[in-house]
């Protein structure tokens, strides 16, 4: 149930992001769309790791070691998403610096006016 909810929300974000990448002309808006797409993928990955009635995989008084099995969500997708978020930040920073370079060279942020990018 919750897995399906997360997957449908993530899929919606992926579609919104993809639509933005395909239709927007402003280069910063394209980068924002990439971030939205990223977030959707993270949401799906976290959703896949969900266990029914699972809690966070952290040991404390409420969740002693003996209760761990079967009561916590999968830690591996969480760790993977942690990695993916950081890589997403790095890629966004790189894209933004390309955007700055493009702007200083062409004095425009519209990809329609940057003819060299046409295919």
């Amino acid at each position: 149930m919750i897995t399906q909810l997360l997957i449908i929300l993530g899929a919606a974000l992926i579609l919104v992001g993809f639509w933005g990448v395909l239709t927007r002309k402003h280069i910063v808006k394209i980068i924002i769309s990439f971030s939205i797409l990223d977030t959707g993928i993270h949401l799906i990955m976290v959703g896949i790791g969900y266990i029914k009635d699972g809690s966070a995989p952290i040991i404390d008084q409420e969740m002693p070691v003996s209760r761990l099995a079967g009561n916590v969500v999968d830690p591996i997708p969480s760790a993977l998403v942690l990695t993916a978020i950081v890589i997403g930040v790095a890629v966004t920073a790189l894209m933004l610096s390309y955007a700055v370079q493009l702007y200083t060279f062409y004095k425009t942020v519209s990809i329609e006016q940057i003819k060299e990018l046409k295919w």
């Binding site: 149930m1 399906q4 997957i7 896949i48 969900y50 266990i51 099995a69 999968d74 591996i76």
Partner: peptide, 17 residues
Amino acid sequence: NMEDAERLSELSQTYVT
């Protein structure tokens, strides 16, 4: 095809326990 999983995969089970 995705239902809420009832239990962890074998590898995650090992990591958790």
